[in-house]
Amino acid sequence: MEKERTERLPHILVKGTATTGGYTRPKRKIDAPGSNIPQRNRQQHATRLISHLQQAKAREAAIIQEQRGFGLAVENGLHITFESESGFELIFESLNFRPSGIELCSVTQEGDKTTATVFVPEGKLEHFLKQVTTYRDHQPDPQAPDKTAKSRSQDLVESISAIKLTALKELWTDDSGLFPDDNSPITWEIWLRHSDKIDHEAFLREHAPKLGLTVGAEAIRFPDRTIVLAHGSREPLSRSITLLGSIAEVLRAKDTADFFTGMERTDQKAWIEEALKRVTPPAADAPSVCLLDTGLNEQHPLLRPVTDINDLHSYDRTNWGTDDRHGHGTAMAGLAVYGDLTNTLASPGPIELSHQLESVKITPNPGHHQEKKLYGAITRDGSHNPRRPG
């Protein structure tokens, strides 16, 4: 009894991985928002941004006319994109100005550059023109230079590198590698803005066929956003940004598990074989994950790279064997090795496995132990079987 109390299962405990040291307060500077903004020549910078805004303003009338011709009679406006300088922040919070209906739709980070997309209602580009001209014309008060050295809009204006009409790529908030390279149809996840003046979801559903888009029946609705799926190619979706004025951001619709579980066995086999071509097995000295479950079917194609028949154990090998006749242990093995298989199968990238598998069968099925058993003892005895270090 005393031996059992002091037993520490040395093959499970990982030793020598921690060090002890005294606490030292880190020395760091806490940067306030707006502290990482490039130095600008006030006149030159303002002139360039005003030029960008005027170029957008020159397109406004034609875009609004096109929207109205398409049937959008209210909530007309433009999507405008603001970019930061590489390596500097963008004060994007200041782009949102609800009193004028100006709405920050999305913010993305590509490398060391920040991009923000804003919906600007018809006639409201003047808001940004006024901010830039105020910045350009600001003169400190010689009587109180410390209080008036900066204009109210200075941090925002100086953080902006460029302003332009929004393209589809600027509304893309998903992994950049998932953005379609060609005009092949895909399923898009579209986040729509909310408005008290118009039901953007209903308008999209009504006019989607004209744009070459098929909108799914389901929707998720939040106070400020509605999410729908739409199938179509890149070109009509790009056009819809201009015509609808309702899109806040766009992602690629993700595959779900039922896409694979609902397949015929022959199709599942083809997907597995494709995934195995991208698998790099774990190193020979890689650690192992030990499953205490209903056993393991190690001949499953996705489990072969990480299992060895010598690593399959059982609490009652004579009567139960080591194989999985219930299915739960094998399913948990797949989860332990690959995580969510939906992403693994659907993504084209390499699959690098980091650990081996071991299995201890502690029950042939979840309802097997009808008689009272000391399950802690079964688990403890099962833990003695694995031979690999954890």
Rank of each mutant, 00 (worst) to 15 (best):
E2T: 14
I12C: 06
L13F: 07
K15G: 05
T24V: 12
R28T: 06
K29D: 04
D31T: 08
G34Y: 05
N41G: 01
N41R: 09
Q43I: 08
H52D: 15
A56N: 06
A62E: 15
R68V: 03
V74Y: 09
V74T: 15
E83N: 10
F88P: 00
F88M: 02
I91K: 05
L95M: 03
R98M: 09
T108N: 11
D112G: 02
T115L: 12
T115S: 11
T117Q: 09
V118R: 08
P121K: 11
E122I: 05
K124D: 13
H127F: 15
K130H: 12
K130S: 14
Q131V: 02
T133E: 14
Y135M: 08
T148K: 07
S153A: 15
L168A: 13
L168D: 05
W172A: 11
D175K: 11
N183R: 13
N183M: 08
W188A: 10
I190L: 15
D199I: 03
H200M: 12
R205Q: 10
H207C: 06
L213M: 14
V228G: 03
S233D: 14
P236E: 07
S240N: 05
L243E: 09
A248T: 06
E249I: 02
V250N: 06
T256P: 00
T266P: 00
T266N: 08
T266A: 11
A270M: 11
K277A: 14
D293R: 03
D293E: 06
E298V: 02
L303Y: 03
R304A: 05
P305H: 06
V306E: 04
T307R: 02
D311P: 01
H313K: 01
Y315P: 04
D316F: 13
N319E: 07
W320M: 04
G321E: 10
D323P: 00
H328Y: 05
V337C: 02
V337S: 01
D340W: 03
L341M: 15
T342P: 11
N343C: 00
P348T: 13
S354N: 13
Q356L: 11
G367V: 01
K373C: 04
Y375N: 09
H384D: 03
P386S: 01
